[in-house]
C-alpha cells in the first residue's frame, strides 16, 4: 500500500504516530491516545468516521476490520461505536471511536468497505437498536429469535424485571429470589444443620 502524498508507511519508525499525523492532516485534529505500541485510540466525530475509514481501507495498510462493537453511555444520552482497524503487515491497530445521539441511534454502514461488517452491524442492531441503513441484515434475527422487548444490551434494559415478566414464579412462591426459600427450608445459612 502506498500513499502517494506522504510516502510509504512501512518506512516510518513509529507507525502509530505517523498514521495519526496523516489523519490529522487530512481530516482534522481528533483527540488521539497512544495506548500501547500496537494500539492507538482516536475519537472521531460522526461526520468524519466514514471518510476516515474509507481512506484507511483503500489507501493505507489498515485493511482489516478486526471488530466493531458499541457501548451505551446512557447518562450522556449517547452510544459509542468502536471500530478496530488493523494493519496486519505493520502490526498496529487503530481504535476509532465515534459517539452517536442515543435518541437517533443510526450510523452509516461500513459493509461496502468490509463484508464481514454485516454480521457486526446485524448484532449491534439487535442488541443495541442502532440502525445501519443499507447494511444487508438489519432487522434479521441473529441471536435473539423472536425477541419483542427493548434491545437487551442497552443499559436501561432491566434483566430482573424482564425475568419476572417472562418467567412466572413457581406455585407457592411470591418472587424469584431462591435464597429466601432455601433459607426457609435449610435455615438462614442455606444448608442442613
Amino acid at each position: 500500500m502506498f500513499d502517494i502524498n506522504h510516502g510509504n508507511l512501512d518506512d516510518s519508525p513509529d507507525v502509530g504516530q505517523e498514521i495519526v499525523r496523516r489523519i490529522h492532516d487530512r481530516f482534522g485534529d481528533f483527540p488521539a491516545r497512544f495506548q500501547k505500541a500496537d494500539l492507538v485510540r482516536l475519537d472521531v466525530p460522526q461526520k468524519d468516521i466514514i471518510p476516515v475509514l474509507s481512506w484507511l481501507r483503500t489507501e493505507t495498510p489498515f485493511v482489516q476490520l478486526t471488530h466493531l462493537t458499541a457501548v451505551d453511555w446512557l447518562e450522556d444520552g449517547q452510544f459509542e461505536l468502536m471500530y478496530l482497524v488493523t494493519a496486519p503487515d505493520l502490526m498496529v491497530s487503530l481504535h476509532l471511536c465515534v459517539r452517536l445521539d442515543r435518541a437517533k441511534a443510526e450510523a452509516e454502514s461500513v459493509f461496502n468497505l468490509w463484508l464481514q461488517a454485516e454480521t457486526y452491524e446485524q448484532e449491534i442492531n439487535e442488541m443495541f437498536g442502532i440502525h445501519f441503513p443499507g447494511s444487508p441484515r438489519q432487522g434479521v434475527p441473529f441471536i435473539l429469535e423472536g425477541w419483542r422487548d427493548m434491545p437487551p444490551m442497552r443499559r436501561d434494559f432491566d434483566t430482573v424485571a424482564y425475568c419476572d415478566r417472562t418467567h412466572p414464579v413457581r406455585p407457592g412462591r411470591e418472587h424469584q429470589d431462591s435464597r429466601v426459600y432455601v433459607g426457609r427450608k435449610f435455615g438462614e445459612k442455606g444448608y442442613l444443620k
Binding site: 495506548q35 500501547k36 485510540r41 478486526t66 471488530h67 478496530l84 481504535h95 471511536c97
Partner: peptide, 16 residues
C-alpha cells in the same frame, strides 16, 4: 478502554 489479544488455537481472540 483497551483491546488485548492472544492467539487461541483458532486464531486471534481479543477483548474490547
Amino acid at each position: 478502554s483497551t483491546y488485548v489479544r492472544a492467539e487461541s488455537s483458532r486464531g486471534e481472540m481479543g477483548f474490547v
